[in-house]
Amino acid sequence: MTDWLVMVVVTTTSVGLALTLGIYGTVVLDRVIGRSIAGEPLRLTRALVGPFQHAALLLLQQRSDTERSDSATWAVAPALLGALAAAALAVVPLTPAVALEVSSGIVYFGATMAMVMVAVFLNGWSANSTFPLIGGYRFVAQALSFEMPLVLVLIAAALPAESLNVADIVRSQDTLWNVVRQPLGLPLYLIAALGVSFLGPLGLPDGIDLAGGTVAELSGTALLLWRAAQAAVLVAVSAMGAAVFLGGWLGPWLPGSVWMALKTLLLIALMVVAKHLFGRVRLERFVVVSWVVLIPVALVHVFLSGILALRRIGS
């Protein structure tokens, strides 16, 4: 029992810490990368304190409401999104010591990422306003399309590890990282990750063509919490990607947690670059491409990884 309590406390604090730092890092990276792509001077100090100023401004703003909105589900949606990100991060081994050894880790991760759909849909639905509503529906279409590739690449990574436990998957990359062993895995995963954190090319639910879509009717704390939850999801998927494809805590010289943090930040940065460089795609087109290209490719990827895993064991 005391062991368990210690585990709970350690996990909760480490997840909380990782999420806070990750969200902060995401916002800073977003600004730095955005400005460098725009060709503007960087102004690093401003980038570093900016997130706090912004958050303070939103905390001091009134929370808006709409006519006959479903206020209960509207309140739950951001909390659910944030909680899902936290829960997903809990099974990602941040260091070899702090790892929840969930033997169906990637099933669990897949479940939390699928639930993101519920949170975003609710956030769009609850406002009783057309643009958020369309945004919510867009996310459902998008989620139904990217969910399968997301899960399939994780299954492929589980093959050589012979386990669904994320920590086992990290350990299986002792000799060779999955990013090399399964070259298709990371790109597919990143596409799906952009989808799950509704960013950039797949930021369809809150596009400007919907005046902000799911966030169009949000203000003040509600907006702050929603953006924080979105960044938290980005952190969670990036951490998972770092663990599954970039060898997690493995790495020379530095302690495992530092490696993990660096790799996660690298993936976050990659996705933020994608956000700023790739425009919003057409949803209709993405759905077809996802079913006709991404899912078959992900399946082929699973089988190829399987054959490679068999050969490695055989030899």
């Binding site: 169906s104 099933v107 669990y108 897949g110 479940a111 699928a114 639930m115 993101v116 759909m117 519920v118 849909f121 459902v140 989620a143 139904l144 969910e147 899960v151």
Partner: peptide, 14 residues
């Protein structure tokens, strides 16, 4: 249990 959760999110949203 976990796989049921995974299925649920999609199924119930649909």
């Amino acid at each position: 249990g976990l796989v049921l959760l995974l299925m649920l999110a999609g199924e119930m949203t649909i």
